[in-house]
Amino acid sequence: MKTIKVLGSGCKKCQQTAENIQQIADEMGQEITLEKVTDTAEIMGYGVMSTPGVVVEEKVLHAGGVPDKEKIKSMLSQ
């Protein structure tokens, strides 16, 4: 089971990102724990200035916008 964190202050794009990830994970039949990180200090701790960002298993794989479907798939299969 993968732990995935969505970094963002709770803006619309961040929610969109989280929803998309959950949906694609469901489609792929992959179990994930999805966590939203909204604390700015913690987000900055990952080195992300442009949110939303996506962290998979403590590695930042994406920053600066809602990732598209292909990107989410490749992140989930890593």
Partner: peptide, 17 residues
Amino acid sequence: DYVWKIRTGQIVMPAYD
């Protein structure tokens, strides 16, 4: 104070299409 304690390390550059 907490601002001074944050260490971001490497800033992640967003990968733009």
